[in-house]
Design a binder for these strands. Structure first.
Length: 221
DNA sequence: CGGATTTGACCGGCGC
DNA sequence: GCGCCGGTCAAATCCG
């Protein structure tokens, strides 16, 4: 399995109503990484995913500082280990998408960051992860043993409706995106982790600092 | 036994 | 005003 950067991934970063821009990022891992800047509203982006296909989207609205990051990976293996620990609190089949969307909360005490993970209806291997809010902790919390548990389930989000018949017969279980990586990959800081790190820097008390994600955007272009 | 996941039910917002 | 849809909650169950 490869980490984020070596696979097909483009990212879209939006920031405070910046006009839609697209640019290449040198520091992106490997190659073919594109940063796309556009205006993403602070409110729940119910239609965001459609607009940012094949991209990573992020926004840091000025009003409530809610950050929204949308990441799509071409391959499920890309399911990013963002370094944070998430607790799944719900799953729902969204209209127009046969694949259920999973809802996660950051398990760090006091951290209200949420994450939505879903597969695209038009590309079952495309995994779309949306992050909402800012982490209240800088360093990603230690991954728990959970990732070990998750190793038993190779790919997450294999939410075939047929697989979800029995309530607790956990077939190809859906695991947290942060938990599908093998321990050997732990040290790897994939791009998502970088972004999340950037988010954590934009939390209260650090809001004066531009998140790293912003710094990744060259001026102009 | 503890932690994590699953899933049906409930609630609120939005559109018609 | 009604219906639809998305988001969240909470109880039950499983695995290490």
């Amino acid at each position: 399995m490869e980490s984020f950067g070596s696979d097909h991934a483009t990212m879209m970063i939006s920031n405070n109503g910046l006009p839609h821009q697209r640019m290449d990022v040198d520091q992106a891992p490997e190659d073919h990484t594109i940063v796309d800047v556009l205006n993403v509203e602070p409110s729940y982006p119910k239609r965001r995913e459609d607009e940012v296909s094949n991209m990573i989207g992020a926004t840091r609205p000025g009003s409530n500082h809610e950050t929204v990051i949308i990441i799509q990976m071409e391959r499920e293996e890309n399911n990013p280990d963002d370094g944070y620990s998430w607790k799944k609190y719900g799953q729902k089949v969204i209209k127009g998408n046969p694949n259920a969307r999973s809802y996660y909360k950051c398990t760090f005490s006091g951290c209200k960051v949420k994450k939505h993970v879903e597969r695209r209806s038009d590309n079952m291997k495309s995994l779309v992860t949306s992050y909402f809010g800012n982490h209240v902790h800088h360093a990603p919390i230690q991954r728990r043993k959970s990732y070990l548990l998750k190793n038993r389930s190779s790919s997450s989000m294999s939410q075939d409706p047929s697989n979800r018949t029995s309530r607790l017969g956990r077939p190809p279980s859906c695991s947290s995106a942060s938990q599908v990586f093998s321990p050997s990959l732990e040290p790897h800081l994939d791009m998502t982790q970088i972004y999340m790190t950037g988010l954590s820097l934009s939390l209260p008390g650090n809001q004066n600092d531009e998140p790293k994600i912003d710094r990744a955007i060259p001026d102009g272009t």
